[in-house]
Design a protein around this nucleic acid. Structure first.
Lengths: 193, 193, 193, 193
DNA sequence: AATGAATGAGGATTCATTCAT
DNA sequence: GATGAATGAATCCTCATTCAT
């Protein structure tokens, strides 16, 4: 074990462990000790690097949003035409990275956290605004004035799919979830013409 | 003079207080004492009537689902034609009773609870199945084979709207939420023909 | 009906135990558990009744000051003539109740606490002002303009004696401490004439 | 190139930082990290040089006592006649070096420390004995048999003044504190004749 | 010489739950 | 029926201290 530059490694390990632990427990009732143990260190060290439980949670949340954002951005760059851009945004939410069981569980829990924690809400709001704005931009050429409304429904359906997935209901998986979203997109655009 | 028939009154008060308290806190991190205090009794009495915190939560969840179910059933009876039946089901989710701030917050939290509590998940599953089945029945005459798929999207969008409402995103309120749902219904049916 | 009226009993026991524990340890590094144990209850109950460690300390401090104040007032009422009044005030600080080892140790620690705790400082200031004012009133007829200055020295010497007593220096005990104070009073008055 | 002779510099920095930190906090609840940070080094190094927190405190205490002793000795050498010697001793306690806010705060805290730490008590006792003995020697020619008693009162009043100063009571400053002491000396000597 | 890394031990505080009355 | 009393079992967090580099 090297003696220097441990911080980023430890932080990453803790973030990863936090998501995993939330995934297993299915709630935020996770102790710092559990997280630290899973990350292979003492709880004291976890506190040392993050300052407190809340900040560990926020870091995990930030991580999930960052990864999501990165994938979405990457997909957008490669996308072809307006319709392709919307698809890219939608698909980004259901990649194997983002639509893993524990990540979805964490996601849902962060939504709940956002109700009581200002910091969490701020984070989520930023993400939401970006998603909404991306969707609207991509939809404008296809649906004109209706872009905003359609974006709202798409965004809500994405979250709805996450919610159902979190409960493993309907046997939703990457594929079917994406299908539902794309179907919605199709009929929205058809109706908009 | 012993008070008779206090039990149902106390239980109802506790259930109501639980929902209110979850609404205020925005999470399940609510103590039995808080709930009991709001319900105007000692926490010991709350335990006496419910046996434990988990059961208080379950009772509150059951209450919400029951009220929702009752309203939906009532609306269904009055509904006119297949399309009217679907509308009735959708509208039931956004009445002022069911779409109140604290109820929505509790709803979201119960979704989370369902991830860690088998009993909670069972409750939710029952409700989900009933909703799904009601929707499919109502949609069948209108959309044939596509009924199931459409029902899934409608159900997911309902939950998505709840989620966004819980975070006061998009300025979602009764009216706009219902509008979005009915719009989805419209275009789904148009596309199904 | 449950066991009633425990609160004052518990609080008194905790205050007493706090003083004793500070006396034994000689510092404020006393755990709530130690205090609670000595008082014959769980630390949880201590928290229940006082809300926190700080408030336990403040209550103990308040208790000491209250007892002191009561004795001083009592002695003042019985005192004969101006000189008698000054003596009464002085003697009150060195009764067997107030000049006990643990009380003196607690006293000293509260002085230190007052440096970091606003609440503690306020308490101490009130006591100090009352002592000063009592002394000045009693001294005025005897020393006129010099009353204030003399009072300051008397008060400082009282505290100095406490300090020395806390460290068992100079073999200070009730008797000698009082003697020193009265001697100071004598020569102050002689010089004031 | 290893830095040579860092040890005394580091130790001095730590001692200084300790006193400052105690002065700021107003208590001994100061962490080694705080001290080390203020001294511009890691807490590990502080341990390396002193072996432990207790020893850092003791070193700080020793430092204060040493400085005080040095000033007192210096003043004694220059003093003129018995009365001048007593004055010199008294004034030494209230020089701007010794009567600084943080030094006084540290002083008071060391008194408290002496109640629980044998080493601290020993240190303080040595200082006390030296002060007492110095005072008695100087007073003997002026007050004969009464020297010891007067010395006790003078010493106690000095500490009392420190205590009041620590709490910024009575608006005590160098000047007024010294005045009170010298007044006491005056009237003691007058009474002794 | 110097420090980042790491932890064990401990302490304040909270809370669901039980019990006697 | 109802509650004050009481606690054990966590849980977060802090900190002195050690160690490898």
């Amino acid at each position: 074990m090297p003696k220097l530059g441990m911080e980023p490694i430890r932080r990453a390990a803790l973030v990863k462990a936090t998501i995993a632990e939330i995934g297993v427990t299915g709630s935020l009732d996770v102790t710092v000790s559990q997280i630290a143990k899973r990350a292979g260190m003492s709880s004291a060290l976890a506190h040392h690097y993050f300052g407190g439980k809340d900040q560990i949670f926020l870091a995990a949340m930030r991580h999930i949003l960052t990864v999501y954002g990165a994938e979405a951005r990457g997909a957008l760059v490669m996308a072809d035409g307006p319709r392709g851009r919307v698809e890219a945004i939608i698909r980004a939410g259901f990649t194997t990275t983002n639509f893993r069981r524990d990540v979805v569980a964490a996601w849902l829990n962060f939504y709940v956290l956002a109700q009581s924690s200002g910091a969490a809400r701020r984070l989520l709001t930023i993400y939401q605004r970006r998603l909404q704005s991306n969707l609207i931009h991509a939809l404008r050429p296809l649906a004109g004035d209706r872009a905003a409304d359609i974006a709202t429904r798409l965004a809500a359906l994405i979250d709805g799919m996450y919610l159902h997935a979190a409960l493993r209901m309907d046997g939703i998986d990457n594929g079917t979830a994406t299908d539902h979203l794309l179907t919605l997109l199709d009929i929205e655009l058809k109706a908009a013409t």
